[in-house]
Simulated assay, not measured.
Amino acid sequence: MAVFTTVSPDEIASWLLDYNLGEMRDLRGIASGIENSNFFLTMEQDGVTREYVLTIFERLTFEQLPYYLHLMAHLAAHDIRVPAPIPGRDGEILRALKGKPATIVTRLPGGSQLAPGVGQCAQVGDMLARMHLAGQSYPRQQPNLRSLPWWQQTEGEILPFLDAGQQALLREELAHQTAFFGGADYAALPGGPCHCDLFRDNALFEDGPAGQEKLGGFFDFYFAGNDKWLFDLAVTVNDWCIDLASGALDADRGQALLRAYHAVRPLGPIEARHWRDMLRAGALRFWISRLWDFYLPREADMLQPHDPTHFERILRRRIEAAALPWT
Protein backbone atom coordinates (compact mmCIF):
# COMPACT_ATOMS: atom_id res chain seq x y z
CA MET A 1 0.00 0.00 0.00
CA ALA A 2 1.08 3.60 -0.39
CA VAL A 3 3.43 4.84 2.33
CA PHE A 4 1.69 7.58 4.31
CA THR A 5 3.73 7.09 7.50
CA THR A 6 7.48 6.90 7.00
CA VAL A 7 9.61 4.94 9.47
CA SER A 8 13.37 4.50 9.68
CA PRO A 9 15.09 1.12 10.06
CA ASP A 10 16.21 2.16 13.54
CA GLU A 11 12.64 2.95 14.57
CA ILE A 12 11.45 -0.43 13.29
CA ALA A 13 14.35 -2.29 14.91
CA SER A 14 13.44 -0.78 18.27
CA TRP A 15 9.74 -1.57 17.79
CA LEU A 16 10.56 -5.18 16.87
CA LEU A 17 12.04 -5.81 20.30
CA ASP A 18 8.47 -6.59 21.37
CA TYR A 19 8.54 -9.61 19.00
CA ASN A 20 10.48 -12.85 18.97
CA LEU A 21 11.36 -12.76 15.27
CA GLY A 22 15.13 -12.38 15.31
CA GLU A 23 17.02 -9.58 13.56
CA MET A 24 15.75 -7.34 10.79
CA ARG A 25 17.59 -7.79 7.47
CA ASP A 26 15.51 -5.62 5.13
CA LEU A 27 12.59 -3.18 5.12
CA ARG A 28 10.94 -2.00 1.89
CA GLY A 29 7.88 0.17 1.33
CA ILE A 30 5.12 -1.29 -0.86
CA ALA A 31 3.97 1.19 -3.50
CA SER A 32 0.58 -0.18 -4.59
CA GLY A 33 -2.74 0.71 -2.98
CA ILE A 34 -4.12 3.78 -1.24
CA GLU A 35 -5.33 2.87 2.26
CA ASN A 36 -2.48 1.89 4.61
CA SER A 37 1.30 2.07 4.91
CA ASN A 38 2.74 -1.37 4.12
CA PHE A 39 6.29 -2.67 4.17
CA PHE A 40 7.96 -5.95 3.26
CA LEU A 41 9.93 -7.03 6.32
CA THR A 42 12.75 -9.60 6.19
CA MET A 43 13.81 -11.18 9.47
CA GLU A 44 16.53 -13.70 10.31
CA GLN A 45 16.33 -16.02 13.30
CA ASP A 46 18.61 -18.98 14.03
CA GLY A 47 20.02 -18.77 10.52
CA VAL A 48 16.58 -18.92 8.88
CA THR A 49 15.25 -15.97 6.86
CA ARG A 50 11.50 -15.33 6.85
CA GLU A 51 9.35 -12.74 5.07
CA TYR A 52 6.57 -10.73 6.69
CA VAL A 53 4.40 -7.72 5.94
CA LEU A 54 4.29 -4.81 8.37
CA THR A 55 1.18 -2.62 8.16
CA ILE A 56 0.59 0.78 9.74
CA PHE A 57 -3.10 1.63 9.60
CA GLU A 58 -4.00 5.14 8.47
CA ARG A 59 -7.78 5.15 8.84
CA LEU A 60 -8.81 2.12 10.86
CA THR A 61 -8.78 2.47 14.62
CA PHE A 62 -7.58 0.30 17.49
CA GLU A 63 -11.25 -0.45 18.18
CA GLN A 64 -12.03 -1.58 14.61
CA LEU A 65 -8.91 -3.59 13.85
CA PRO A 66 -9.42 -6.66 16.05
CA TYR A 67 -12.27 -7.73 13.76
CA TYR A 68 -9.98 -7.88 10.72
CA LEU A 69 -6.92 -9.35 12.41
CA HIS A 70 -8.76 -12.05 14.32
CA LEU A 71 -10.74 -12.91 11.18
CA MET A 72 -7.47 -13.54 9.36
CA ALA A 73 -6.25 -15.67 12.26
CA HIS A 74 -9.56 -17.58 12.25
CA LEU A 75 -9.43 -18.26 8.52
CA ALA A 76 -5.78 -19.32 8.64
CA ALA A 77 -6.65 -21.75 11.43
CA HIS A 78 -9.34 -23.21 9.14
CA ASP A 79 -6.86 -23.89 6.31
CA ILE A 80 -7.78 -20.86 4.22
CA ARG A 81 -4.60 -19.41 2.73
CA VAL A 82 -4.50 -15.89 4.18
CA PRO A 83 -1.79 -13.90 6.02
CA ALA A 84 -1.62 -14.95 9.67
CA PRO A 85 -1.08 -12.16 12.24
CA ILE A 86 2.05 -12.60 14.34
CA PRO A 87 1.70 -12.12 18.10
CA GLY A 88 4.29 -10.21 20.08
CA ARG A 89 5.99 -11.50 23.18
CA ASP A 90 2.89 -10.54 25.15
CA GLY A 91 0.56 -12.46 22.83
CA GLU A 92 -0.98 -9.31 21.30
CA ILE A 93 -1.31 -9.01 17.51
CA LEU A 94 -1.96 -5.25 17.45
CA ARG A 95 0.25 -2.51 18.89
CA ALA A 96 1.15 1.14 18.35
CA LEU A 97 3.88 2.37 16.00
CA LYS A 98 4.44 6.13 15.72
CA GLY A 99 1.13 6.62 17.47
CA LYS A 100 -0.84 4.53 14.96
CA PRO A 101 -2.13 0.94 15.03
CA ALA A 102 0.28 -1.55 13.46
CA THR A 103 0.65 -5.29 12.98
CA ILE A 104 2.89 -7.92 11.37
CA VAL A 105 1.52 -10.79 9.28
CA THR A 106 3.06 -13.68 7.38
CA ARG A 107 3.86 -13.06 3.72
CA LEU A 108 2.05 -15.32 1.27
CA PRO A 109 3.95 -17.02 -1.57
CA GLY A 110 3.61 -15.99 -5.20
CA GLY A 111 2.76 -12.90 -7.19
CA SER A 112 -0.31 -11.19 -8.58
CA GLN A 113 -1.98 -12.62 -11.68
CA LEU A 114 -3.22 -9.48 -13.42
CA ALA A 115 -4.35 -11.29 -16.59
CA PRO A 116 -6.24 -14.26 -15.13
CA GLY A 117 -7.57 -17.09 -17.24
CA VAL A 118 -10.38 -19.55 -16.68
CA GLY A 119 -8.24 -21.75 -14.41
CA GLN A 120 -7.21 -18.95 -12.10
CA CYS A 121 -10.79 -17.67 -11.85
CA ALA A 122 -12.03 -21.15 -10.95
CA GLN A 123 -9.47 -21.38 -8.12
CA VAL A 124 -10.57 -17.98 -6.82
CA GLY A 125 -14.24 -19.03 -6.86
CA ASP A 126 -13.48 -22.26 -5.00
CA MET A 127 -11.44 -20.55 -2.29
CA LEU A 128 -13.90 -17.68 -1.90
CA ALA A 129 -16.70 -20.15 -1.19
CA ARG A 130 -14.55 -22.07 1.30
CA MET A 131 -13.62 -18.79 2.97
CA HIS A 132 -17.29 -17.85 3.32
CA LEU A 133 -18.14 -21.20 4.91
CA ALA A 134 -15.14 -21.07 7.25
CA GLY A 135 -16.18 -17.60 8.37
CA GLN A 136 -19.56 -18.81 9.61
CA SER A 137 -18.00 -19.82 12.93
CA TYR A 138 -16.19 -16.50 13.41
CA PRO A 139 -17.78 -14.92 16.49
CA ARG A 140 -16.95 -11.22 16.02
CA GLN A 141 -19.38 -8.89 14.26
CA GLN A 142 -18.66 -5.74 12.26
CA PRO A 143 -20.61 -4.45 9.27
CA ASN A 144 -19.01 -3.66 5.95
CA LEU A 145 -18.03 -0.04 6.61
CA ARG A 146 -18.12 0.79 2.88
CA SER A 147 -21.70 -0.32 2.32
CA LEU A 148 -24.89 1.67 1.64
CA PRO A 149 -24.67 4.12 4.59
CA TRP A 150 -21.17 5.16 3.49
CA TRP A 151 -22.28 5.53 -0.13
CA GLN A 152 -25.11 7.80 0.97
CA GLN A 153 -22.82 9.82 3.24
CA THR A 154 -20.17 10.27 0.54
CA GLU A 155 -22.57 11.21 -2.27
CA GLY A 156 -22.71 14.89 -1.30
CA GLU A 157 -18.91 15.16 -1.12
CA ILE A 158 -18.31 13.92 -4.66
CA LEU A 159 -21.32 15.24 -6.58
CA PRO A 160 -19.76 18.71 -7.20
CA PHE A 161 -16.95 17.08 -9.21
CA LEU A 162 -19.29 15.22 -11.60
CA ASP A 163 -20.94 16.31 -14.82
CA ALA A 164 -24.72 16.24 -15.21
CA GLY A 165 -24.80 12.73 -16.69
CA GLN A 166 -22.62 11.31 -13.93
CA GLN A 167 -24.68 13.04 -11.26
CA ALA A 168 -27.86 11.53 -12.68
CA LEU A 169 -26.29 8.05 -12.79
CA LEU A 170 -25.09 8.31 -9.20
CA ARG A 171 -28.42 9.53 -7.86
CA GLU A 172 -30.45 6.95 -9.80
CA GLU A 173 -28.24 4.04 -8.80
CA LEU A 174 -28.20 5.07 -5.14
CA ALA A 175 -32.01 5.18 -5.22
CA HIS A 176 -32.10 1.72 -6.83
CA GLN A 177 -29.72 0.24 -4.27
CA THR A 178 -31.50 1.89 -1.34
CA ALA A 179 -34.75 0.22 -2.42
CA PHE A 180 -33.00 -3.13 -3.01
CA PHE A 181 -31.21 -3.10 0.36
CA GLY A 182 -34.48 -2.29 2.10
CA GLY A 183 -36.42 -5.20 0.61
CA ALA A 184 -37.34 -8.62 2.00
CA ASP A 185 -35.26 -10.47 -0.60
CA TYR A 186 -32.12 -8.61 0.45
CA ALA A 187 -32.77 -9.46 4.09
CA ALA A 188 -33.12 -13.14 3.15
CA LEU A 189 -29.77 -13.35 1.35
CA PRO A 190 -27.18 -15.47 3.22
CA GLY A 191 -24.09 -13.76 4.53
CA GLY A 192 -21.27 -13.57 7.02
CA PRO A 193 -17.69 -12.30 7.06
CA CYS A 194 -16.68 -11.12 3.56
CA HIS A 195 -13.43 -9.88 2.05
CA CYS A 196 -15.29 -7.05 0.22
CA ASP A 197 -12.21 -6.07 -1.84
CA LEU A 198 -11.05 -9.24 -3.58
CA PHE A 199 -9.42 -7.72 -6.65
CA ARG A 200 -6.73 -9.32 -8.80
CA ASP A 201 -4.01 -7.56 -6.84
CA ASN A 202 -5.31 -8.96 -3.53
CA ALA A 203 -4.57 -12.58 -4.44
CA LEU A 204 -1.28 -14.32 -5.18
CA PHE A 205 -0.42 -17.27 -7.42
CA GLU A 206 2.66 -19.44 -7.12
CA ASP A 207 4.76 -20.08 -10.21
CA GLY A 208 3.85 -23.01 -12.43
CA PRO A 209 3.20 -23.96 -16.06
CA ALA A 210 1.04 -21.42 -17.90
CA GLY A 211 -2.56 -21.86 -16.83
CA GLN A 212 -1.63 -24.17 -13.95
CA GLU A 213 -0.37 -21.67 -11.38
CA LYS A 214 -1.52 -22.53 -7.84
CA LEU A 215 -3.46 -19.99 -5.82
CA GLY A 216 -1.17 -18.83 -3.00
CA GLY A 217 -3.91 -17.07 -1.08
CA PHE A 218 -5.95 -13.93 -0.46
CA PHE A 219 -4.67 -10.90 1.44
CA ASP A 220 -5.57 -7.31 2.42
CA PHE A 221 -8.64 -7.98 4.56
CA TYR A 222 -8.85 -4.40 5.84
CA PHE A 223 -12.12 -3.69 4.04
CA ALA A 224 -13.67 -6.92 5.32
CA GLY A 225 -16.98 -6.94 7.14
CA ASN A 226 -20.16 -8.90 7.66
CA ASP A 227 -22.14 -8.59 4.46
CA LYS A 228 -24.08 -10.67 1.96
CA TRP A 229 -21.94 -13.35 0.35
CA LEU A 230 -23.45 -12.45 -3.02
CA PHE A 231 -21.99 -8.95 -2.69
CA ASP A 232 -18.52 -10.40 -2.08
CA LEU A 233 -18.96 -12.64 -5.11
CA ALA A 234 -20.12 -9.71 -7.26
CA VAL A 235 -17.13 -7.54 -6.26
CA THR A 236 -14.82 -10.43 -7.19
CA VAL A 237 -16.45 -11.17 -10.55
CA ASN A 238 -16.49 -7.46 -11.44
CA ASP A 239 -12.69 -7.48 -11.35
CA TRP A 240 -11.52 -11.01 -12.18
CA CYS A 241 -13.92 -11.76 -15.02
CA ILE A 242 -13.99 -8.64 -17.18
CA ASP A 243 -12.32 -6.96 -20.10
CA LEU A 244 -10.47 -4.16 -18.33
CA ALA A 245 -10.71 -1.74 -21.24
CA SER A 246 -14.48 -1.91 -21.66
CA GLY A 247 -15.73 -3.29 -18.34
CA ALA A 248 -17.68 -6.02 -20.17
CA LEU A 249 -18.00 -9.38 -18.42
CA ASP A 250 -16.16 -12.34 -19.91
CA ALA A 251 -18.65 -15.22 -19.98
CA ASP A 252 -16.08 -18.02 -19.82
CA ARG A 253 -14.17 -16.62 -16.85
CA GLY A 254 -17.37 -15.57 -15.11
CA GLN A 255 -18.97 -18.98 -15.40
CA ALA A 256 -15.75 -20.70 -14.32
CA LEU A 257 -15.57 -18.64 -11.14
CA LEU A 258 -19.27 -18.95 -10.38
CA ARG A 259 -19.45 -22.70 -11.03
CA ALA A 260 -16.41 -23.36 -8.84
CA TYR A 261 -18.00 -21.27 -6.08
CA HIS A 262 -21.38 -22.99 -6.53
CA ALA A 263 -19.77 -26.44 -6.25
CA VAL A 264 -18.64 -25.57 -2.71
CA ARG A 265 -21.51 -23.33 -1.56
CA PRO A 266 -24.58 -23.75 -3.78
CA LEU A 267 -26.16 -20.47 -4.81
CA GLY A 268 -29.88 -20.15 -4.17
CA PRO A 269 -32.80 -18.81 -6.22
CA ILE A 270 -32.93 -15.44 -4.43
CA GLU A 271 -29.23 -14.98 -5.19
CA ALA A 272 -29.86 -15.80 -8.85
CA ARG A 273 -32.75 -13.32 -8.99
CA HIS A 274 -30.63 -10.47 -7.65
CA TRP A 275 -27.31 -11.18 -9.35
CA ARG A 276 -27.57 -8.08 -11.54
CA ASP A 277 -28.49 -5.93 -8.53
CA MET A 278 -25.39 -7.09 -6.67
CA LEU A 279 -23.08 -6.63 -9.65
CA ARG A 280 -24.41 -3.07 -9.84
CA ALA A 281 -23.92 -2.63 -6.07
CA GLY A 282 -20.32 -3.81 -6.34
CA ALA A 283 -19.62 -1.42 -9.21
CA LEU A 284 -21.28 1.50 -7.40
CA ARG A 285 -19.27 0.90 -4.22
CA PHE A 286 -15.96 1.19 -6.05
CA TRP A 287 -17.03 4.01 -8.35
CA ILE A 288 -17.88 6.08 -5.25
CA SER A 289 -14.68 5.21 -3.40
CA ARG A 290 -12.48 5.92 -6.42
CA LEU A 291 -14.20 9.25 -6.99
CA TRP A 292 -13.57 10.08 -3.34
CA ASP A 293 -9.89 9.09 -3.50
CA PHE A 294 -9.38 10.86 -6.84
CA TYR A 295 -10.99 14.21 -6.04
CA LEU A 296 -10.34 14.33 -2.29
CA PRO A 297 -6.86 12.76 -2.05
CA ARG A 298 -4.57 12.50 0.92
CA GLU A 299 -0.84 13.09 0.80
CA ALA A 300 1.33 9.98 0.51
CA ASP A 301 4.89 9.27 -0.52
CA MET A 302 3.78 6.76 -3.15
CA LEU A 303 0.09 7.47 -3.68
CA GLN A 304 -1.38 6.06 -6.90
CA PRO A 305 -5.10 6.88 -7.09
CA HIS A 306 -7.14 4.71 -9.43
CA ASP A 307 -9.14 6.02 -12.37
CA PRO A 308 -12.78 6.35 -11.20
CA THR A 309 -14.18 6.15 -14.75
CA HIS A 310 -13.29 2.43 -14.81
CA PHE A 311 -16.10 1.59 -12.41
CA GLU A 312 -18.45 4.08 -14.01
CA ARG A 313 -18.09 2.03 -17.20
CA ILE A 314 -18.63 -1.22 -15.30
CA LEU A 315 -21.77 0.13 -13.63
CA ARG A 316 -23.24 1.26 -16.94
CA ARG A 317 -22.40 -2.14 -18.48
CA ARG A 318 -24.14 -4.05 -15.67
CA ILE A 319 -27.25 -1.90 -15.99
CA GLU A 320 -27.43 -2.29 -19.76
CA ALA A 321 -26.34 -5.93 -20.22
CA ALA A 322 -28.90 -8.14 -21.92
CA ALA A 323 -27.55 -11.23 -20.13
CA LEU A 324 -25.07 -11.96 -17.36
CA PRO A 325 -22.95 -15.08 -16.69
CA TRP A 326 -24.39 -17.38 -14.04
CA THR A 327 -24.01 -20.99 -12.95
Rank of each mutant, 00 (worst) to 15 (best):
L148Q: 13
F181W: 11
G217W: 05
N238E: 06
I288F: 08
P297D: 14
A300G: 12
L54G: 02
A96M: 15
D307T: 14
D277R: 04
L189T: 06
W150A: 08
H262D: 12
H70T: 03
G119Y: 01
Q45H: 09
H274W: 12
A168K: 14
E172M: 02
F180I: 14
M302F: 08
R318S: 11
E155T: 09
D201Q: 07
M43W: 01
I34L: 09
I270T: 08
I86F: 11
Q64S: 14
A76W: 12
Q152W: 04
L291F: 12
I12E: 07
L75N: 00
K100N: 09
A188F: 10
L174P: 14
N238K: 05
E320I: 15
D26A: 13
A283G: 07
L284W: 04
E35Q: 11
L145N: 03
H132Y: 00
T309M: 04
E206W: 09
G182W: 12
W326N: 06
H306S: 10
E206R: 09
D220M: 08
V237H: 02
G217N: 09
Y52N: 15
Y19M: 09
A300H: 08
G254D: 07
V3K: 01
H78D: 01
A248I: 13
T61C: 03
Y261E: 03
A187V: 13
A129Y: 00
I93L: 06
L215W: 02
L16C: 08
P190I: 01
R25T: 13
E271C: 07
A13M: 07
L233P: 01
S289N: 03
Q142I: 08
E312A: 05
P149K: 03
L148E: 08
G254T: 10
A175Y: 04
L60W: 02
E63M: 08
L75P: 00
D18Y: 13
L94H: 10
G268T: 09
Q141A: 12
G110I: 10
A256I: 05
E11W: 12
L284A: 05
R89D: 10
F218G: 01
K100F: 05
G183L: 15
G22Q: 07
Q142P: 05
P297W: 12
V105Y: 15
I158K: 02
A203T: 08
H310E: 14
Q167W: 13
Q141V: 11
T61W: 04
